[in-house]
Amino acid sequence: MTGANGFLVTAASALVLVVLTLLLLATGAEGAALGAAALAGVALVALIAHLVRAGQRGVLPPLLLGFIILLLWEAGVRAFDVPGVILPSVSAILARMASSAPTLWEDFAQTFLRGALAGYAIGCGAGFVVALVADRTPALQRGILPVGNFLAAMPIVGTAPILVMWFGFDWQSKAAVVAVMCFFPMLVNTVQGLAAAERMQKDLMRTYAAGYWKTLTKLRLPAAAPFIFNGLKICTTLALIGAIVAEFFGSPIRGMGFRISTEVGRLALDMVWAEIVVAALAGSAFYGLVALLERAATFWHPSQRRAR
């Protein structure tokens, strides 16, 4: 009973303090707003603690934490008059995102839809196919795993200047960088996955008189799926990083990496942050999409079973 009451009191005071902070910010009383924001932060942390104690584990606690940080960020930047070249306020970034939406979309299309996605498809596809080929010769497979692991840990981003030189400034060179970056993690994971089927299972397929291809499609690829999706998920992040970093070495006058490096040079940090927000959203959405596909494809695997 008291717990429920305490929860209601905490929630209500957090709400009041948040509204108060926003009002103070709107009226321009920055110092008071920072104080209110700090109190609101404390109230929200107490609220999170209540939620956690009540067994709430979903997206609400992290979202509330993110909200606290944004609130303190906004109030702090305005109260201490932090110059925009060091840290722009949240509202300035949002305003910039709204006013520069067409530019942001153009950069997104150039970097993500053309460079990153094309490279992702090529790199992951090539890694998969080479892994299948290597899998047919055990000696090759034993050699490829260490070399692939070695190269996967390398700073492959460094090939960007070379590939920009070969494929020109446009998105093709970015796709090439992404393809190279995605190739080795995909190769290594697929080779490992293809080795995941157990001997008993393979023997069973043999007793069914299943040939190589039947065994591959009915047993080994499904058994490899968790590894393959692991590779695909690693590559989603690498794809975006590769496409953005490759643009630091030369690009047409659009693209997220180009915009970040030029706007940093002009100290227009609100635009840089806007691009970073877009990159973060795109990266998370891409990862989430692959994770959803994984859940649909490998629903039988223990790691996908939810504890209910």
Binding site: V157, T236, T237, L240, I241, I244, V245, F248, M256, G257, I260, S261, V264, V272, E275, I276, A279, A280, G283, S284, F286, Y287, G288
Partner: peptide, 9 residues
């Protein structure tokens, strides 16, 4: 999942 390297510059 976020391309942190974009923050580097």
């Amino acid at each position: 999942t976020i391309p942190i390297l974009a923050l580097a510059p």
